[in-house]
Design a protein around this nucleic acid. Sequence first.
RNA 1: GGACCCUUAGCUCAGCUGGUUAGAGCGCUACCUUGACAUGGUAGAGGUCAGAGAUUCGAAUUCUCUAGGGUCCACCA
Length: 884
Amino acid sequence: MEESTIEKIYNPKDVEKKWYQKWKDQKCFTPRQGDQPAFSLIMPPPNVTGRLHMGHALDNICQDILIRYKRMKGFRTLWIPGVDHAGIATQSVVEKKLYKEQKIKRNDIGRDEFLKHVWQWKEEHMHEIIQQLEQLGVSCDWDYLTFTMDSIPNKAVRKFFVDLYNQGLIYQAEKIINWDTTLQSAISDAEVESKEVKGKFYYIQYQIEGSDDTLTIATTRPETLFGDTAVAVNPKDERFSQYIGSYAILPLTDRKIPIIGDEYVELELGTGCLKVTPGHDFNDFEIGKRHQLPIINILNKDGTFNENAAAIQGLNVQQGRKKTIELLEEKKLLIKVEDRLQMVGHGERSDSIIEPMVSQQWFLNVSDMANKAVKAVENSDMKFFPKGWENTYFSWLREPKDWCISRQLWWGHQIPIYQCQSCQHQWASEQDPSACPNCQASEFTQDPDVLDTWFSSALWPLSTLGWPDQETMKQKDFESFFPTHTLVTGFDIIFFWVARMMMSSLSITNQVPFKHTYIHGIVRDKQGRKMSKSLGNGIDPLETIDQYGCDAVRFTLAAGAGYNRGLNLDPAKIEGYRNFVNKLWNAFRFLSPHLKNTDSNQIENITSLNSEEKWILEELNQVIEQVSHSIEDYRFDDASSALYRFIYDQYCSWFIELSKPILFSDDDKAKGQRLQVLTLVLKDILKLIHPITPFVSEEIYSHLSKNQMLISEKYPEVRAEFNFPDDRFKMNQLIEMVTQIRNLRASLNLKPKDEIKAQFFTDNQEVAQFFYQQKIALKDLAGIVAATISSKASKRPGKSSAVATDQVEAYVQLEGLIDLKKEQERLQKKIDHLLKEQQKFQAKLDNPKFSENAPEEVINEVKEKLNHSTLKINSLKAALNNLD
RNA sequence: GGACCCUUAGCUCAGCUGGUUAGAGCGCUACCUUGACAUGGUAGAGGUCAGAGAUUCGAAUUCUCUAGGGUCCACCA
């Protein structure tokens, strides 16, 4: 034992710092050597720009629980941490900073110079996010720390890209894409969120060429008419089909555009006439393809109108719309305007309205990969927990669209496509080339675009283990650790990330990147609302750790993480678990003065154990079983609550309380034995709970075990020799009896200090003997002095209150204190309640259909219950009769 | 428009393949500074498991419908 004083209130701050440093220094997070099976995880890399939020905390804590558990189970564990370069986010942070501090825009200094600034920024800030991760207590192997733009990931990206290019799966094309006018880049379909926006439906009149007839067109985007190249009607529409083949005069311009027939147009929608803008609408683009319509681009990259929309050139979309309406009104071509709710695409990152635009981009054809990825889940090579999430996964992968992978940014993996300036040959290359492979000319240019950040993320399980560099793969032991075991993440990135890792890994290695995917819920506030800046309801994990301690936060998140979709976080909960951590601390604090030689992990003489000792060991077995199962099933909630109950109720409230008289007695033998049990159970508790609350458990353990750190201990297993069902039964009788007597005392308004005399009656010899041994406990816990135990044949005392379990009756004599009438009522009420129960069971058994159909187990169970309530009823009835 | 999920104590939630006297934490009430812990102890109140119907010997649990809430996907001009 250390001599230092043990504080009354557990103080997490110093403890956390101390142990994290020790674990790191002693390489506890590094996979151990040997031939044990491997277990590996990859950390979803947080953005280098970010600050950790509760979602990160939950995600990482679940992983840490798994890795600590498996490590203690003897696996060769590896958890690989990483940080994401987050193309868009980082580039804009640095852009803003440069402008703010030096009034420099990126175009002023050029690409290379700008990237130097970004790298510098990254060097300065990456450690911040790592430090935040460390505060969560994560036991990942920092030697494996990977940044998504490190040279190995870059090699991985280039190799994957070049292979796909050479297979013809990556291609360049002029297609309609989502254009983010703020970022001035293309983004993928997955990065567009539709949001409901209040808009208007404008009805515009078009003149038909060479006729007095007009067509009315309804649109939400009148300003795009400058890019229109047709009017479409449904050929089946009798109102308009006659016009197909004629031309309409496009208002505000001098152009005439064909009126075409296309099945896509719906009869009931709008006016039944559709303006077709192939350059700025996904559907119109398709219609345009079918009818070989020309494409007119009317927007600049920043979202203002260009010369093709001369009347509104230079205006942004909002202004352009207003101006267009004014012009139409002047010409009396605007028939009417209606309010309308519509879904409009917004950029995930920038939140600005996405403009569909036709542009030259790189695409990846994912059909085959997606197919493989679907099959891998269908045949359970990879399993989702909870299973339901595979639907989300399938829905994305079963209708794959080509992935737009190029981004008009500077920060990211530059596309490894080169073009020769003399022969125009285009090729993809894993290394920076020195000459054109076609004509050997040394003048060539690299495609300026970078790849979607998710393209490198898709390779994360491979690149973090060194792929494709053979040397590094060996050094990182790719062989052992790939495929990884479990991916832990949120459902919001099932298709962004999970699906894409599956696709790339299957395509490269023919193996799944991980065998399980555990999807946890989204952390929300107490009322179930998303945490957001605008609502101001965010809970910062680091502040919370500062306030309550890391273990309390970890336990709270673990207790909330199961198979649910949301985790509503209430600070009151964290406080509650802070108290629980303190409870554990105080259990240790109570024991510590009694502990001398605590390094023993043995019970010297199992046969000499008494019933309560056997009971706690039996209960220990139960909790070991339950916690292990729950963690393996990703039911961290079940694991936490099993531990909570065992520690709080079984260990602290009963076992420690029952141990007090022995520890304060002079019976050295009994004391020694009891301490062995107390210590063994406490040590197992610490081992069991360590994955969830690593700090407090390690701290306490350091007082109990001199040589070994808890993090490297072996996880408890169920011990066959601790199987004591009979003692469990006896102990439960005692617990029930004590509880009932306390209840009786409360109903009689007795003060805690008031002592009572009791007579027990039972025909169960075992229980009788046990109660006899527990005289002191009965005094301490129920305030009973002078108890006697006799058989049920004996005469019951008069003027007494009584309580009963199914085995034991207790009569409490309280001369003068008992109001006979009240007591009668109390007993009658109990009896009535039990009678109802009894009738229910009896009715079941009397029902012939029940006994015919129900399995024997169930029937026996009901019989047993009937028997219990009958026994109790008889006891209480006797007590009632005995009252007067 | 499709798909999925939720509705159990005042609050936040467990309740697995149908058989419990329907549970936990917080909150609440009463009493307690008993030599680990007031970040504590003991006891208690509180639920016709959203509603209706069906299957069954038996439904919080399975099925159908209704009402309310949520999430994701979708190009409805």
